[in-house]
């Protein structure tokens, strides 16, 4: 029914930064296929005239005054860091480039 293939699952794993094993890819492909077949029914009633609801309780213009607060100390910032150096988080080499 749905278009879930192992290749698609692999691609989704890349997008989601999860290193899926082949066994996981296979299992997820089958499971997602069933799930997607079940949930695709939303499109039956989602006609163009129906507006989408993003927030259950509609509010707007909720702003914060431009006043400094909630700042963490550098110790708090780094308190759970897996690795750090010079007051900054340390990560292994990055391939690619800044966005």
């Amino acid at each position: 029914m749905s278009e879930i293939t192992p290749d698609l699952v692999r691609h989704l794993g890349v997008l989601a930064r999860i290193q899926l094993s082949e066994e996981e890819v296979e299992r997820l492909t089958g499971q997602l296929d069933v799930i997607v077949d079940n949930i695709a029914k939303v499109s039956e009633v989602a006609t163009p005239d129906v507006v989408a609801t993003s927030h259950p309780i509609p509010l707007q213009n909720v702003f914060r005054p431009d006043v400094v607060g909630d700042q963490l100390t550098p110790e708090q910032v780094l308190q759970n860091a897996p690795d750090s150096a010079d007051g900054r988080f340390r990560v292994t080499a990055i391939l690619g480039e800044e966005q």
Binding site: V77, A85, D86, G87, R88, F89, R90, V91, T92, A93, I94, G96, E97, E98
Partner: peptide
Amino acid sequence: RIQGAEYSLVDY
């Protein structure tokens, strides 16, 4: 630069 760097440091 980013190419060839051993590691990177992040400041938020």
